[in-house]
Design a protein around this nucleic acid. Structure first.
Lengths: 136, 136
DNA sequence: TGTTGACTTAGAGTGTACTCTAAGCGCTAT
DNA sequence: ATAGCGCTTAGAGTACACTCTAAGTCAACA
């Protein structure tokens, strides 16, 4: 169970980022200004922690920090903005589709080159380099 | 058939990059110093063009400019360095494998969220944002 | 002949996402 | 008490891959 009111160091550890990164997210407005204790130190609320979860999950989904910011403000605007969220996701799905096609092709090519290289005579030229030279 | 001895502008056009980029590749040593005509302008030889093809193909294979530089020097060293080339390619294949797994998962998640959003009532909260909030 | 337009250079600027530095403060452990 | 650690700030630095600026040269075309 996650404790609330944690220091920047603890939160950083929990999310596997550096305190620098947390301050940076705040600086660019991805996190709202985090409240401070009497000594001026950041104290992360449960809400802040949830926001961070959101950021990190969206980041794993290949959204840029800028896009994540957009998602957050669309979330705040709620109901009205569903079409915009959908658009963002559709774009992302198209990117993903393209990347998948791309990577699969590439995987085949590189695998072929690698096995050619592994089974080549010791004193032949490297079929991988030659492969990159010739691949269209 | 590709003409030899082309100006920077023509070459840039042919490779869909800017002249800036070509000078940049030269500056960082990815292209050897390109020869100049009497007026001091770059004239790209067939060798330069081939090198550029190599760079662009390797780039499409997700090699960074730094890695491409390594591949080129391994190519120059030829026979001896095959294992290093293989290592680079194996690393790249691992990266690709991971990206593929990642992207497929992501594709499923986003697709599910999107159809939930499309079939949701107009006045419900956006299931996509909610989905990102809750997805582990 | 004059004016485009493509080229030259060195060096600065861009965007993304951090990452670090310097100077300083305040709690805790020895 | 004093050393050390984690925190604070503003602002600078990093890596990648370009991208542009300013000031100037040169060849071709009207």
């Amino acid at each position: 169970m996650s404790l609330t009111n944690q220091s920047i160091g603890r939160v950083a550890e929990q999310f596997n980022v550096s305190p620098y990164t947390l301050r940076y997210y705040e600086k660019i407005g991805l996190l709202p200004p985090v409240s401070k204790d009497s000594g001026g130190r950041r104290v992360y609320s449960q809400r802040d922690i949830e926001r961070l979860h959101f950021i990190k999950r969206a980041q794993r989904m290949h959204f840029s920090l800028k896009e994540i910011g957009e998602l957050i403000s669309l979330d705040k605007a709620q109901l009205v903005e569903k079409p915009q969220v959908q658009e963002l996701v559709i774009e992302k799905l198209n990117d993903i589709e393209e990347s998948l096609k791309d990577l699969k092709l590439l995987q085949n090519e590189l695998t072929a080159m690698l096995s050619a290289c592994l089974s080549s005579n010791e004193d032949d030229q490297c079929p991988i380099i030659e492969g990159i030279k010739e691949t269209d």
